[in-house]
């Protein structure tokens, strides 16, 4: 057994099915570059030994990730990350976002306000957004 690279956590009040929470957390870790091609996902036994959930839930999440082409099972070895979802880092972009978040906080916005603004901007709902 190799080292455990990521651990899952569950939000029982989110209304999102448990297996889908695991799928989303793997995808998130891949996007952030915390999981890269060749990394082994924790085994079902490792996951349920921490979360006290049904092992079939973990296997279902891994099957879903496999059908999305993100991971592949290697019999007897485990389930491995197949590709990268991480984009090349853009320090300038990250600096501007950090500055913007700081401005938003100083303007008195809380995390939920900030998330709502970002969601709105993503869906094109902010006034003054460039359409060209």
């Amino acid at each position: 057994m190799g080292v455990t690279l990521i651990e899952f956590s569950l939000d029982k009040r989110s209304g999102v099915a448990t297996y889908m929470q695991i799928v989303q957390q793997v995808e998130q870790a891949m996007r952030l570059g915390r999981l890269t091609p060749g990394d082994r996902l924790p085994t079902a036994a490792e996951v349920v030994g921490r979360l006290a959930i049904n092992p079939n839930t973990v296997l279902r999440a891994y099957r879903e990730l496999e059908s999305r082409g993100l991971v592949e099972p290697r019999p007897g070895l485990g389930t491995f990350v197949r590709r990268s979802l991480a984009r090349p880092r853009d320090p300038a972009l990250e600096r501007r976002l950090a500055a913007w978040v700081r401005d938003a906080r100083e303007a008195g916005l809380g995390p939920d306000d900030i998330r709502a603004l970002v969601e709105s901007a993503l869906s094109g709902g902010l006034i003054g957004e460039a359409t060209a």
Binding site: A45, E46, V48, A52, I53, N54, P55
Partner: peptide, 12 residues
């Protein structure tokens, strides 16, 4: 929680 973790690990 610990008993369930142990049992589920054995199932897996």
């Amino acid at each position: 929680h610990e008993v369930m973790e142990g049992l589920m690990a054995a199932v897996a």
